[in-house]
């Protein structure tokens, strides 16, 4: 187990370097740059733009630029954002916290709802209740996240049930930490529920199919034949085995945290990484894009690693060869 984790962590280094190199070359090769827009502005002199380029190290060859960026990244210095004029690290730190909170919230809620319902519907396959759940799941899968987000925003703005946009309301200086937390959670609720609604249908269907598949396996039949009580057959044999493929899905969901929520974040006004990456790409904010990509790649690899570790932990066929 330790070997597996260590091996996968070591693999992370060349993967991150390769990914960042390809991204750097692609971004730099694309037509136009951040300063192209500045050149259109008659108030900014070409000399100022040139001196900015020198400051950011953009006057050197691409390979040198990349190596310099890589050297700084090893010290966790991602450079300075062209647009915000603050270190990318500071910018990402704040936004990343919000995105991770949003992702964990929607992930936990959608898994907590989807898994028990899937087992319930799977056990009662073909019944009226199963058909109702399956229909709702189809609805959840077929609704695009941006549409659900728009509906939510419209509904909330009409009813004023929850705060919209940003992460906190205007507070007195001496507001208690509980009040701050409650306020943060209230802001989180709208984008969180949107993501949860969109995610829950797919998870339900996957889990239900897994459960039905394992419920019809020979070892479940053998458990019934041994006179094992019903709850043990369902939860010990069928559910445990049905959960195994879900660990891979969990890993992939963790890996997709940054990209999955971008549209919802933008529509709900949640200051997360999704909207930051989109703005950075559109304005050619090189170091911000690179910083976001590294974090994204890191999460992707770590997410898959978590999935693999969970599978190895729960499945002795992988743990013990």
């Amino acid at each position: 187990m330790k070997k597996l984790v260590l091996k996968r962590l070591l693999q992370l280094i060349p993967m991150l370097i390769g990914m960042s190199f390809v991204s750097f070359i692609i971004i730099q090769s694309s037509p136009g740059d951040y300063f192209a827009q500045m050149k259109m502005n008659p108030e900014i002199s070409p000399e100022t733009i040139e001196s900015m380029k020198v400051n950011f190290g953009l006057d050197r060859p691409i390979l040198v630029q990349y190596l310099l960026w890589l050297k700084n990244m090893c010290k966790l210095d991602f450079g300075v954002s062209f647009a915000y004029h603050i270190p990318v690290r500071t910018l990402i730190k704040f936004r990343l916290k919000n995105t991770i909170c949003l992702a964990i919230f929607s992930l936990v809620i959608s898994w907590v709802i989807a898994l028990p319902l899937a087992v319930f519907a799977g056990y009662r396959e073909g019944t009226f209740i199963d058909k109702i759940f399956s229909m709702l799941a189809y609805l959840s899968i077929s609704l695009p996240s941006f549409f659900v987000a728009l509906l939510f925003v419209y509904f909330i703005s009409k009813t004023n049930l929850l705060p919209l946009g940003g992460t906190r309301s205007i507070f007195e200086v001496d507001a208690s930490s509980f009040a701050l937390f409650k306020d943060y959670m209230e802001h989180l609720l709208v984008p969180g529920l949107v993501l949860c609604l969109v995610n829950v249908g797919g998870l339900f269907r996957l889990m239900k199919n897994n459960f039905i598949e394992t419920f019809n396996t020979p070892y479940v039949l053998a458990a019934w034949a041994r006179g094992v009580p019903r709850n043990s057959v369902i939860f010990k044999h069928a559910l445990r085995n049905a959960l195994n493929p879900m660990f891979t899905i969990l890993g992939m969901e963790i890996g997709g945290i940054l990209n999955g929520a971008a549209l919802t974040e933008i529509i709900c006004g949640w200051p997360g990484m999704g909207s930051l990456i989109l703005e950075a790409v559109l304005s050619h904010d090189l170091y911000l894009v690179m910083g976001s990509l590294v974090i994204s790649g890191f999460l992707l690899i770590v997410g898959n690693l978590i999935g693999d570790i969970l599978i190895a932990f729960f499945d002795p066929r992988i743990r013990i060869s």
Binding site: P218, Y219, A222, A225, R226, N241, F314, D315, P316
Partner: peptide
């Protein structure tokens, strides 16, 4: 299991791998 028990044909498929 108590009064009647059964042995199946492919034991690898009928034993829970976990």
């Amino acid at each position: 299991g108590k009064d009647i028990s059964i042995i199946f044909q492919d034991p690898s498929a009928y034993l829970d791998p976990l």
